[in-house]
Amino acid sequence: MSQNTETTPGTAPATDPLAPTNPITVPSGIRPPAGPPAPAASFRRKPAKKVNRGPVWLKPRFLVSGTIVALMLLMAAFPQLFAGFGSDPTANCDIMNTNQAPSPEHIFGMDIQGCDYYTNVIYGARASILVGIVVTAISFVISALLGSLAGYFGGWVDTLISRACDMAFGLPFILAAIVVLQLFSERTVWTVIFALALFSWPGGVRFMRSSVMEVRNREYVQASRLLGAGNGRIIAKHIIPNSLTPLLVLQTLGIGGVISAEAGLTFIGIGLTPPSVSWGLQLAAAREYISAAPHLLIFPAIFLTITVLGFVLFGEAMRDEFDPKGK
């Protein structure tokens, strides 16, 4: 074919490399056989201006919000770690020390009952975090379930679920929660969770429904259907894994809102009732002593704000990471 072929190295074929050939030799798609392996190092690359493109968990926002969230979760689970082992928010109270200002022994001061306020504030995290997480988890499960059904099956299933959503949407969230809570005279954390969870799911269901409807029409779902897969398999293997992450992110963003809703309801007197310990209750109690003992207001407020902010920032960091548009 050509006398020049001798000069090509051993890796090159002896005949015209592009000449049509008949034998069935499926070319390797992964690594082409011809040619020397190319060195990975580039020889002439000037370092481009360094942009912070490290792993997610090293991004400042994620780092800060993640730390806050982790601390708060820890505080809710093991308040002893922060308040000291054997501590008890209602023990060692001395009514004589009522509303004492912060001092070296009691850095947050004392409350009305003369109990150590630091211990009380630490123990108050549990109610807030528990309400936030559990309500969100319940709403997440309901949203995932109903949203998948409505989005995947469409038709009357969709109509039924969507109308139910619309109705739940029609009720103002706080108002509806107030009405439900009024039915109970003594309200524990679980009562509040029940009331909030009852009305927190419609947004999630709608969101899930639309993302399932989008995934349902993807080609890989059609491919699976062509293989003969049934609905159960398609939902479990294809629909859920591909539409759950956005919902998870949305729900994470909602935790902060649930926490502040709990505090708000408790503050206006229809949330938790004593003997529960919560930031909302502490704020409500502090209302009357706002000029005499401002520390009663300041410390739970700071904790509440930081917690809500932490969860919202955490949700946003998650959204930025998993938002398909950002990729």
Partner: peptide, 20 residues
């Protein structure tokens, strides 16, 4: 990760050491 030499060398039937 562009290669140091000719970018087409790893797909090229004519490639030699010089190309890399």
């Amino acid at each position: 990760h562009l290669p140091a030499g000719c970018s087409f060398a790893n797909r090229c039937a004519f490639a030699s050491e010089a190309c890399a």
